Simulated assay, not measured.
Amino acid sequence: MNATDFDIAICGAGPVGTALALLLAKQHPHPDRIAVLGKNFDLARTEHVQGDPRTLALNHGSLRLLQGQLQAWPRRAAPMRTVHVSQQGRLGRCLIQAHEMGVADLGAVVHYDDLLEKLHARLRDSGVTLIPAQIAQANSAPGHMRVQHDAGQSSALLAIQCDGARPNGLRREYKQHALLTTVRASRPQDGWAYERFTAHGPLAALPHPDGADLYGIVWCNGPERSQTLAELPESDFQHALMQAFGERLGQLHTVSDRHLFPLAFHAGPSRLAERMLAVGNAAQTLHPVAGQGLNLGLRDVAQLAHSLAPWQSDCRQSPTPFLTRYARLRRPDRWLTAAITDTLPRLFATHNPLIQHACGLGLLAMDTLPLARLPFARQLLQGLRA
């Protein structure tokens, strides 16, 4: 008999932690030996919970995981079939298209709350143990982990930190905020998503799951400029947005509140202790350019579930070789994705005209040369998968 309360304790019940629990429960002979510690398990049945304003751009790899293995795809989703990348004030643009990549969709955009509600519904039917907790923190003990949480303390052979803790390691304050809002376009383009690099930061317009003529805006600027934009009268904000984005979608009219989120880069090791791993936001938090944060986290959990499958058949064996192998296999994808999302917004926002021209030429080269475009597109589409 196991001496611990659980075999695996997952600290965090967001999309990454929930997806990990569902994957592990499929393999474990006793799913109740897996504990998920987190909040909002009853999100769908709690009317007073304020809705999350975020929409999520899920790439093709994440779409396949959520639709296929997890069967947790939200009812509302806006497909992305073409991604248009451009630079304000410079020549050159690049199109990434689904048919060129051999897929029906590059990905899709969903509501954060819709995805979490669907994942939590699957979680309640999975047999895992749910422990409501605002905060869960794991600490090493001889041969196991102690997990402190709101209801007291639990013990587990392994602890996986998914959110609620910043990674310890590399850190960069971007001195930017992301402004989120929703707009209605007078000339919508079915299945098109846009990433536009401006002198202040990237500006994304993503298809919206609530309507074919709606787009989710993610506009990155310095903190003062972001605050000013958030407080502008509606007509002035729309004018500023049109100046930055252009008229590709016709006139843009805001249909929701504006929300600000500060941006920073954090990345640390996957292995936190002998019996503890970090995945998702606990391992890396990225700039939102290209929408890679959650997609990278979902690749983390897919690889971790695969790596832990032999250990879950007999949890009395040492987990060290399985955790070591997981960390080694994930390292290239994690650091390549982090490098791309960290470099792009800083490179395009430089005020050096030579670099600005070089960026424009780079987009033109990618658009005209498949050998330059396809590896980059493939990384955004599915990442490096072991």
Rank of each mutant, 00 (worst) to 15 (best):
H259P: 01
S256Y: 01
E234K: 14
G216C: 01
A240D: 07
A267G: 13
E224S: 11
S226D: 04
S270C: 11
P233D: 15
P262K: 08
L260A: 05
P233S: 12
F245V: 13
T254L: 12
Q251A: 14
F237S: 02
G250Q: 11
L260M: 05
G250Y: 09
A240W: 02
Q227L: 12
I217W: 02
R225K: 11
E234D: 15
H239E: 14
A240E: 14
P223R: 12
L241E: 06
F265H: 09
G246V: 12
M242S: 15
S270D: 04
A264Y: 03
H239N: 12
Q227E: 15
W219P: 01
L252H: 04
L232Q: 11
L252E: 03
L263I: 12
F245E: 09
F245I: 13
A264H: 09
G222A: 12
E247Q: 14
R225I: 13
P223Q: 09
A240Y: 00
A240C: 13
D236C: 11
V218Q: 03
F265D: 05
N221W: 00
R248S: 09
P262I: 11
A240L: 06
A267T: 07
H259F: 07
N221T: 15
L229S: 01
N221Y: 04
F265A: 12
Q251G: 04
L260V: 07
L229M: 13
A267S: 12
E231N: 10
H266P: 00
S270Q: 07
L232S: 04
V255I: 11
A244E: 13
H259T: 10
R258F: 05
P269H: 05
V255D: 02
H266S: 09
E247T: 14
A244D: 14
Q238A: 12
L252P: 01
H253W: 06
G216L: 05
E224F: 06
T254H: 00
V255H: 01
H259R: 07
E231V: 09
F261I: 12
R248T: 07
S235E: 15
G246L: 13
R258S: 06
V255C: 10
S235Q: 14
G268D: 01
Q251T: 13
T228Y: 00
Q243Y: 05
S235G: 05
F265Y: 14
E224H: 10
H259V: 10
G216P: 00
R248C: 08
M242H: 15
W219I: 09
S256C: 04
L229Q: 02
L229E: 01
F237Q: 00
S256P: 02
T254Y: 00
S256M: 03
H239P: 00
S235R: 13
A230Q: 09
P262M: 12
A264F: 04
D236S: 15
P223G: 08
F265C: 07
G268A: 03
D236R: 13
Q238M: 11
I217D: 00
L229I: 07
P223L: 13
P223S: 09
S256V: 03
S256W: 00
A230Y: 02
G268I: 02
V255G: 01
P269Y: 01
F265Q: 08
Q243F: 08
D257H: 07
G250W: 08
E224K: 14
L249G: 03
T228W: 03
E234N: 09
H253L: 13
R248A: 14
A240N: 06
A264R: 10
H266K: 05
L232C: 06
P223V: 11
C220H: 05
S256I: 00
P223N: 09
F237D: 03
Q251D: 10
G250R: 10
E224M: 12
L229H: 04
